[in-house]
Amino acid sequence: MLCRVVLPSDTYAQKAQRVLAANGYHSEIIRSTSRGMGCGYSLRAAGDCETIRALLYRENIPVQNVRDERSMP
């Protein structure tokens, strides 16, 4: 499963990537632009979205959205 995690900034994307790596998840940082939010960053990570969301939540990382990439248009 490929998971897309939307984060508010580059710093939080970097921090989230470190958290996921420490828990065995490989991820890639990609730039994302969304209507209403403007420039932001996303992580594309291989893994279960709910587990990833919980991991980042535990580290107080302000995740804006977590989606299964298959559900994305």
């Binding site: 508010p8 900034s9 580059d10 710093t11 939010m37 403007g38």
Partner: peptide, 17 residues
Amino acid sequence: GSGSMSDLPEMPPFLPD
């Protein structure tokens, strides 16, 4: 410019941005 939340007319509300 902060490179984040660029749609906002004000600075992002979080550090360090």
